[in-house]
Amino acid sequence: MDGHGADRTRRWTPNRDTTGPPPGGRPLPPRPTETTLARPPAPRPSPPATASTHDETPFEVPRYDPARFLQGLVATGWRQAEERGQSVHLQGPWPTIAVYPSSFAAVVDGGQDSLRAYAGQQDLPRHAGLVFTRAPLYHVNHPDMVPLDILLWKLALGASRGRLPLDTSLDTPWTLGEWPNFTRLIVTPGAMSIAALWTRQACTLRQTIHLLNLPPADVFAFYAAAAAIDLIHPELPPPPAPTTRPAASPTPPPLPAINPTPRRGLLRKVFDKLRTT
């Protein structure tokens, strides 16, 4: 980095309110749920709440705040750099991360896996310095260049560790706009099944745990990663029809079902063979 054009006076600031995706560009990363980076440390989290699936099997719902991890820092740095039309270098006790919004890529000093030890450290972004620049630090074909979605997916998994982002409801029906590019992402346990389900029908987290018989932590980890790259969207209820009758009490959405194919036995054998060999 030669620092040419860099705004060295600019340091980490809490999120500014931003607009939606740029015209014709990639969607901006979801905004971290809180602007805690400039706040004093939050109190220690209370013990995880418990919930239950449709059949009342209880399970824990541990939470985490993406904004307090590298995941949130990269997402916010990306968004701010996109707005400025610049790249940004995220500096701190971790290997420097250079984010290039225009090419939807990042370069991590020493390779992306060098961030693994830092991804799960809470409040690390409080030590962040953001340097915006128009002068790319790395060549576009740098061997350590990684697509941003791959990096954010990993950082989200490292931060989540099976926990659900704050303020995410267990009972909001979610859909997946598209299958993640699993050949280039970490495939967590159950991730492909969840993707298949959510691209087909809206489903709450609670329903997903029940329908796919997955450990809640696996569902939460997938949710955290997919949400980090903006693949997940809530299914909004249809607007109420105009009526003169008194409004009926809201009814819970019906539990979706997976109708097993008659060939499930055979397909499962093929699936397992491809997994194990």
Binding site: S193, A195, A196, T199, L211, L212, R263, L267, V270, F271
Partner: peptide, 10 residues
């Protein structure tokens, strides 16, 4: 295969 039957891996 999962696109045919998402419950395959259960």
């Amino acid at each position: 295969l999962l696109n045919i039957d998402p419950g395959l891996d259960d």
